[in-house]
Lab assay of single mutants.
Amino acid sequence: SPEVQIAILTEQINNLNEHLRVHKKDHHSRRGLLKMVGKRRRLLAYLRNKDVARYREIVEKLG
Rank of each mutant, 00 (worst) to 15 (best):
S1A: 08
S1P: 09
S1V: 06
P2R: 05
P2S: 05
P2F: 14
P2H: 07
P2Q: 06
E3R: 02
E3P: 03
E3Q: 04
E3C: 07
V4D: 14
V4E: 14
V4L: 11
V4R: 10
V4K: 11
Q5P: 03
Q5W: 12
Q5R: 07
I6R: 01
I6D: 00
I6E: 01
I6P: 00
I6Q: 00
A7F: 15
A7T: 07
A7I: 14
I8S: 06
I8K: 11
I8T: 08
I8F: 12
I8G: 03
I8M: 11
L9A: 01
L9V: 02
L9K: 00
L9Q: 01
L9H: 00
L9F: 02
T10P: 00
T10Y: 03
T10V: 08
T10D: 02
T10A: 02
E11P: 01
E11N: 06
E11W: 10
E11K: 08
E11T: 08
E11V: 10
E11D: 07
Q12H: 12
Q12M: 15
Q12Y: 10
Q12A: 11
Q12T: 05
I13N: 01
I13M: 02
N14I: 09
N14G: 04
N14F: 07
N14D: 06
N15P: 01
N15G: 08
N15Q: 13
N15E: 12
N15M: 13
N15K: 14
L16A: 05
L16C: 07
L16N: 01
L16G: 01
L16V: 04
N17L: 15
N17T: 14
N17V: 15
N17W: 15
N17P: 01
N17K: 15
N17F: 15
E18T: 06
E18R: 10
E18N: 10
E18V: 07
E18S: 08
H19C: 09
H19L: 07
H19D: 03
H19S: 04
H19T: 04
H19Q: 06
H19F: 09
H19N: 03
L20N: 02
L20S: 02
L20G: 02
L20W: 03
R21F: 03
R21M: 07
R21D: 04
R21S: 06
R21N: 06
R21E: 05
R21A: 07
R21H: 05
V22A: 12
V22K: 11
H23E: 03
H23W: 05
H23F: 06
K24V: 11
K24E: 08
K24T: 12
K25C: 13
K25V: 05
K25A: 11
K25I: 07
D26K: 07
D26T: 05
D26G: 05
D26F: 04
D26W: 03
D26A: 04
D26M: 04
D26P: 04
D26C: 07
H27S: 08
H27V: 09
H27C: 11
H27Y: 12
H27K: 11
H27A: 09
H28N: 11
H28W: 07
S29M: 11
S29L: 13
S29E: 04
S29W: 06
S29C: 12
S29P: 03
R30G: 03
R30A: 07
R30L: 13
R30Y: 10
R30N: 06
R30W: 15
R31Q: 10
R31G: 06
R31V: 10
R31T: 09
G32L: 15
G32R: 15
G32M: 15
G32W: 15
L33P: 00
L33D: 01
L33I: 05
L33M: 08
L34M: 12
L34Q: 10
K35N: 09
K35G: 05
K35I: 13
K35M: 10
K35F: 09
M36H: 03
M36P: 00
M36L: 15
M36N: 02
V37T: 04
V37A: 04
V37W: 09
V37C: 12
V37R: 06
V37N: 03
G38M: 15
G38V: 14
G38H: 13
G38F: 12
G38D: 12
K39F: 08
K39I: 13
K39S: 05
K39V: 10
K39H: 08
K39T: 08
K39P: 00
R40E: 01
R40T: 02
R40Y: 05
R41F: 09
R41S: 09
R41P: 00
R41Q: 08
R41K: 09
R42K: 12
R42E: 09
R42I: 10
R42S: 06
L43C: 03
L44M: 05
L44T: 00
L44W: 03
L44D: 00
L44H: 00
A45Y: 05
A45G: 07
Y46H: 10
Y46M: 12
Y46Q: 12
Y46D: 13
L47R: 00
L47F: 02
L47N: 00
L47W: 02
L47V: 05
R48D: 00
R48G: 02
R48E: 04
R48Q: 06
N49V: 14
N49G: 08
N49E: 14
N49R: 13
N49K: 14
N49Q: 13
K50D: 05
K50A: 11
K50Q: 13
K50M: 14
K50E: 11
D51W: 03
D51L: 04
D51H: 04
D51G: 02
V52R: 12
V52F: 15
V52Y: 15
V52G: 09
A53L: 12
A53R: 10
A53K: 13
A53M: 10
R54D: 03
R54P: 00
Y55I: 02
Y55Q: 02
Y55K: 01
Y55A: 02
R56A: 07
R56F: 11
E57M: 06
E57Q: 09
E57A: 13
E57K: 07
E57T: 05
I58M: 07
I58S: 03
I58N: 00
I58T: 03
I58H: 01
I58Y: 04
I58A: 04
V59R: 03
V59P: 00
V59F: 05
V59Q: 03
V59Y: 04
V59D: 00
V59M: 14
V59I: 13
E60D: 07
E60V: 08
E60Q: 11
E60Y: 06
E60A: 13
E60R: 12
E60W: 05
E60L: 11
E60F: 06
K61V: 08
K61E: 07
K61R: 08
K61A: 10
K61L: 12
L62N: 02
L62K: 02
L62A: 03
L62F: 06
L62T: 03
L62P: 02
L62D: 03
L62S: 02
G63L: 15
G63N: 13
G63P: 05
G63C: 15
G63I: 15
